[in-house]
């Protein structure tokens, strides 16, 4: 092929308007490393939302590991000193060399999954660094939206009906039938609760604009120490004291 047609072909390909999708990186962690005397092939799938559950798979090619315990720890800082109670990874029925487990990663940042393997040749540990960051926000499925919509309608209609009935009849003597005055009072209470329910139903909209469409700003843009979680726990803003 001489130069000119090749150039034309390259230009056409470069300008081709079809969208192209490609995988440009995976948050999953793969590690082939020893834990003492045992060789382990580790896969950690960090959660897409944080705090969330990370999936851990450990393959033991030697097949001589009896139990594996896994525990998540921050990589550095004061939280790295004390470990929570480790989880025992479950041995697969289909492949006895495969162990799986699930771990809660409670904040974004640099974490490690500490793996302790035990078998006939003693014990060994391995730490796998795991970065965690919220990646996506789960969209609400149509079915769930429908279910919650029905609940919302029932709750709003129920609140209106109950408020109306309460105002109409709750103070009547035994067996007394509601008169015109009571019926009007009930309708006023119903209208008042319609207004209240309208506000309640619309109120979440601004919140949805900030958190529904994408990952929560506070969970991504702010350092984890500034997340608006329990002030007592993370010392939100407490540096001001």
């Amino acid at each position: 092929m001489n130069g000119r047609p090749a150039l034309v072909l390259a230009t056409v390909i470069a300008c081709w308007p079809a969208g192209v999708r490609a995988h440009v990186g995976s948050p999953d962690i793969f590690l082939d490393a020893p834990a003492g005397p045992y060789r382990l092939l580790v896969t950690v799938r960090p959660p897409s939302a944080v705090p969330g559950v990370a999936d851990v798979e450990i393959l033991t090619p030697g097949g001589d590991v009896d139990t594996i315990r896994i525990v998540p720890l921050p990589l550095t800082g004061p939280g790295a000193q004390f470990a929570p109670t480790p989880d025992v990874a479950t041995r697969s029925d289909a492949d006895p060399k495969l162990f799986t487990g699930h771990l809660w990663m409670m904040s974004a940042g640099a974490w490690q999954v500490r793996i302790a393997a035990a078998g006939a040749r003693g014990e060994g540990t391995l730490s796998v660094p795991v970065p965690t960051l919220p990646q996506t926000t789960l969209a609400m499925k149509a079915a769930l939206r429908g279910v919650l919509g029905v609940f919302l309608l029932l709750l709003c209609a129920g609140a209106i009906a109950i408020a109306s009935a309460f105002a109409r009849e709750a103070t009547l003597e035994d067996g007394e039938q509601p008169g015109k005055r009571h019926i009007v009072r009930g309708r006023i209470a119903g209208v008042a609760s319609v207004c209240q329910n309208s506000v309640t139903a619309v109120e979440p909209a601004p919140r949805e604009c900030t958190t529904g469409a994408g990952p929560s700003l506070t969970k991504i843009d702010c350092p984890c120490a500034l997340w608006p979680v329990t002030t007592r726990r993370n010392g939100l803003g407490m540096a001001m004291s």
Partner: peptide, 17 residues
């Protein structure tokens, strides 16, 4: 009603802290 809503919230934004 709060049960399915909370479940979705956990999946979307993570465990409540």
């Amino acid at each position: 009603a709060s049960a399915p809503f909370d479940d979705w919230w956990h999946n979307a934004y993570g465990l409540d802290v």
